[in-house]
Design a protein around this nucleic acid. Structure first.
Length: 289
DNA sequence: AGGCATGTTACAGG
DNA sequence: ACCTGTAACATGCC
């Protein structure tokens, strides 16, 4: 379930495992991902050390020594597995096949590291991708250059957001999903942010009151931070426990909760589901005006 | 069997 | 040139 918090948790977990390890070999089982894996570029990774992992929006950026970096996006179902020296397999706890024996089928790219440790890019639906770049091209990368501010940085603030929405006619749900406006939010967290802010997802941004804009900005930070902290404390690391499925899902208040009681005290309304911009939207008719 | 799914982007039309 | 909405991608689950 890779939106910003999940990607951040993966980043933190992976850092502990693979920083300063050398890529011995790259095995491409199926390079037909969102973009076809460039074999020639991928070969350049061989013998190089992974020096750093960064995150921008929902992208992971692996810095590889000698001016290379690898851009990774999980799409809908992408993920990493890590296999350590003792052949223990660590899986992130979001979206994977419930039958762990089916994992193998979707192992698309395998990075063989030192001591026979392995980093495996697994993706059921193949909407994710891996691209290799030279560092000097960093500023030209299509995927990164049009992204809006990082929600947890100061650049995401009332002034910026108020200015961005002025003169626009779109609804608030749609605009929060737009990576040019704010980078890293997806359908789940936008639903949650609007519930906490008491704003109906269909509201036109031109009709929002200052207080509501303020709430949306603050609650974005609040929900993402909380989610990262829960991911950090609950998942803490890649889990070797195969039984867990989406630990953070239990904290959702509206996503996928249609028909269930609104969680606000004194509210007896059931959560509604409608489609906005082709995406499922969950909200409480009474609490979100 | 058919509809739905956590994301991005190329493209068409205004 | 900018703004907006839609289709397409691949696979599995309900």
């Amino acid at each position: 379930m890779p939106e910003l918090p999940e990607v951040e948790v993966v980043k933190r977990s992976l850092e502990n495992k693979i920083i300063n390890l050398i890529i011995k070999k790259v095995k491409i089982n199926d390079g037909n991902l969102r973009y076809k894996v460039n074999i020639k570029e991928t070969l350049k990774l061989k013998g190089k050390k992974i020096t750093k992992i960064k995150r921008r929006s929902k992208f992971l950026i692996f810095e590889i020594e000698e001016e290379l970096f690898m851009l990774v996006h999980f799409g809908m179902t992408g993920k990493f597995f890590f296999i350590d020296k003792n052949k223990t397999k660590f899986r992130t706890s979001f979206y994977y096949s419930l039958d762990k024996n089916k994992d193998e089928k979707h192992n698309r790219i395998i990075f063989i590291l030192e001591n026979n440790q392995k980093l495996i890019f697994n993706d059921i639906r193949k909407f994710g991708f891996i691209k290799i770049y030279n560092k000097k091209n960093y500023n030209k990368i299509l995927h990164l250059k049009n992204l809006g501010p990082e929600p947890l940085e100061k650049s995401w603030n009332y002034k910026y957001f108020n200015n961005y929405i002025s003169g626009r006619k779109r609804n608030i749900k749609n605009i929060l999903m737009d990576q040019k406006c704010i980078a890293g939010l997806g359908n789940i967290y936008v639903n949650e942010i609007l519930f906490l802010s008491g704003v109906n997802p269909s509201r036109k941004v031109s009709q929002l009151k200052s207080l509501e804009i303020e709430k949306i900005v603050k609650n974005t930070k609040k929900i993402l931070k909380r989610s990262i902290a829960q991911g950090g404390s609950t998942i803490k690391d890649f889990s070797s426990d195969d039984g867990k499925k989406g630990v953070f899902q239990q904290y959702f208040k509206v996503y996928n909760k249609d028909g269930e009681k609104c969680s606000n005290v004194d509210c007896n309304m059931n959560i509604s589901k409608i489609v906005i911009s082709n995406r499922a939207s969950f909200f409480c008719k009474r609490c979100q005006k």
